[in-house]
Simulated scan of single mutants.
Amino acid sequence: MNPIKANIPNSITCINLLAGCLAIITAFHGNNLLWGMPAYLWAYIFIAIGAIADFLDGFAARALHAYSNLGKELDSLSDLVTFGVAPGIIVFNLMSGWTEALQWLPWTALLIPVAGAIRLARFNIDTRQTTSFIGMPIPANAIFWIGYTATFMNGADSLFSSFVFLPVLLIECWLMNSPLRMFSLKFKNLKLKDNAPRFILVAAAIAFCATLGVGGLMWLIIFYIGLSILFRG
């Protein structure tokens, strides 16, 4: 295969990685203004760019038949940065800047990338996860924490209290490495019968974001978990 063609998916994966790095950098500015808006919003945007690249690299690999072990490992490493480390740093910095937070509490957010790394390592050696997931996929983890922190920044201070945050953190980390089967968002065709949960999730995403804004992403992932249980992955 032409080496340029073979490396197109890997190049897109590197965009995911770069976006994750930028998300981490901007997250360290917390709620301070950066380029005209709060820095944590830029972190959200960079994670979204990473998610788009993560979708496109797989699409390009399938379209060009450019699969490789290198691409698989590079994809997982990039996903860990963008969807594991970046959301963990967002939570850490926003919680650190909250005057009511206990001094030790923000550090527990580092469990997010740890659980994400374990999830990706398990995924790479699990041959059963081809058409569905076992455990919550790590991009969904990032989407949840974006929605969670956005809801907090909109005035829901209780989300960063130890009584709420710690149980949510532990449940999220467990979900990524749980035996729960969750359906993939890949559409093999556009038939309603074959993609009912996917179409429902797309409709829910529009409804949650239209009514709750970015904070609706938290409820979207909770809905996704429930929908996966209903449809059994």
Rank of each mutant, 00 (worst) to 15 (best):
G36L: 11
P38G: 04
A39W: 11
A39T: 07
A39G: 13
Y40L: 11
L41E: 14
L41D: 10
W42F: 12
W42I: 00
Y44Q: 11
Y44M: 13
I45C: 14
I45P: 03
I45Q: 14
F46E: 03
F46H: 11
I47Y: 08
I47D: 11
A48G: 15
A48Y: 13
I49A: 14
I49K: 11
G50T: 10
G50Q: 12
G50M: 14
A51T: 12
I52G: 10
I52L: 15
I52A: 15
A53H: 09
A53P: 09
A53M: 12
D54E: 05
D54K: 15
D54T: 06
F55R: 06
L56V: 08
D57C: 13
D57Q: 10
D57K: 15
F59A: 07
F59M: 12
A60R: 09
A60L: 11
A61F: 05
A61V: 06
A61M: 10
R62W: 02
A63H: 09
A63G: 03
A63L: 15
H65A: 10
H65R: 13
H65V: 04
A66G: 01
A66S: 03
A66C: 05
Y67H: 13
S68V: 04
S68K: 02
N69Q: 12
N69F: 08
N69R: 14
N69T: 09
L70D: 05
G71I: 00
K72H: 08
K72L: 12
K72D: 07
K72W: 08
E73T: 10
L74E: 01
L74M: 05
D75H: 05
D75C: 04
L77W: 00
S78D: 00
S78T: 06
S78N: 02
D79H: 05
D79W: 04
D79P: 04
L80N: 11
V81G: 02
V81F: 06
T82K: 06
T82A: 15
G84S: 08
G84A: 10
G84M: 08
V85Q: 06
A86F: 09
G88D: 00
G88M: 05
G88L: 03
G88P: 00
